[in-house]
């Protein structure tokens, strides 16, 4: 039977949580289109995490385990996916629209001659897709014209499915890569943080350009930690080197949809809103009452962050103690 192939993503031996949101889409698409669900996990020593993918209704879990796949690189991964896609007659190939997904999926689409819908938020009854365009100002409905389709999914738009007790066959993929790779990974400078991952947190506290320097950053960090929140930022804050690039929320950064989002000293440019307007409750703190962020916020406080953030920290500590 024809199938749908979900590419699971791992980083240093742990599955990325967003893979399960992608799985939510893949499962739904499999049912709707009458396709078998197959999952691929690639990397080095990834046999263990394949178990975590059990219980989601897959027909098979394919494990591509090879030292050449330890660090993600476009070409080796493309080869593995395309070969498997042919073997299992995959009509749809999908993954989460992470940095890796964005790098890999178009390349696969090109090799398979398939059309690709990027960053979708919904699949309709007729098999067409909805996706945000113009920095999320509007939603486009698109049709992929090729029989075979490649789809990347926006994590915040799909729920992770419940785990059942079914078991999928586990298949070891025979990894044989063609030719020497033309890309060599030389170095990796990791951003280390003890805080929760932005896209996975229940609460996100984001600071903007207004943090100004380390003192301002510390203030936002303190509030984040107190709330067990992930920290985010605007582009301006990242550009200024105040916080790591990875914390950027927006059109071209991370898309988040936590239960509670704080935008502190962030003006609310459309490119920032694109990354957080799906949040359940939005709080804006800004000293400019005209800041566009207030149009979107559920609760707005017109105030100087350097005054009210420490006040909030004290007050939350007090309430927690009580």
């Amino acid at each position: 039977m024809a199938s749908i192939l979900l590419i699971a993503e791992q980083y240093k031996g742990s599955l990325r949580k967003v893979t399960f949101n992608g799985l939510g889409f893949a499962k739904q698409a499999a049912e709707q289109l009458g396709l078998d669900l197959h999952i691929l996990i690639a990397g080095s020593d990834v046999g263990g995490i394949a178990d975590e993918l059990q219980g989601y209704g897959a027909k098979a879990i394919h494990v591509a385990d090879d030292s050449d796949l330890e660090i993600y690189r476009t070409e080796p991964y493309t080869q593995v996916v395309c070969k498997l896609a042919d073997e299992i007659d995959a009509q749809m190939i999908t993954a989460a629209a992470t940095v890796q997904g964005k790098d890999l999926l178009p390349r696969i689409a090109g090799r398979l001659g398939a059309g690709m819908a990027s960053d979708i938020v919904e699949m309709l009854e007729d098999g067409t897709f909805k996706r945000p365009v113009w920095a999320g100002s509007v939603i486009a409905r698109v049709r992929v014209e090729t029989d075979r389709k490649v789809v990347s999914t926006r994590g915040t738009a799909f729920e992770a499915p419940k785990k059942g007790d079914d078991t999928a066959d586990v298949n070891e993929v025979d990894v044989s890569l063609d030719e020497a790779d033309k890309v060599r990974v030389e170095d990796m400078e990791e951003t280390k943080s003890e805080r929760p991952e932005l896209t996975e947190a229940r609460v996100v506290v984001s600071g903007g350009r207004s943090m100004k320097d380390d003192k301002g950053v510390k203030m936002i960090e303190e509030l984040s930690d107190l709330l067990g929140a992930a920290m985010g930022a605007s582009r301006a804050a990242c550009d200024a080197g105040l916080v790591p690039n990875e914390l950027q929320v927006g059109q071209t950064g991370k898309v988040v949809a936590p239960e509670l989002y704080f935008a502190i000293g962030i003006s609310g440019a459309i490119q920032h809103l694109a990354g957080m307007k799906g949040s359940k409750v939005i709080v804006a703190i800004n000293k400019d009452p005209e800041a566009p962020i207030f149009q979107l916020a559920d609760y707005g406080l017109v105030a100087d962050m350097f005054k009210v953030v420490p006040e909030m920290v004290e007050e939350i500590k007090k309430r927690k103690g009580a």
Binding site: T98, V185, D187, M188, E246
Partner: peptide
């Protein structure tokens, strides 16, 4: 710029 940090490739 990747998820996890900065990677240098040749």
């Amino acid at each position: 710029e990747i998820d996890g940090g900065l990677e240098t490739v040749e």
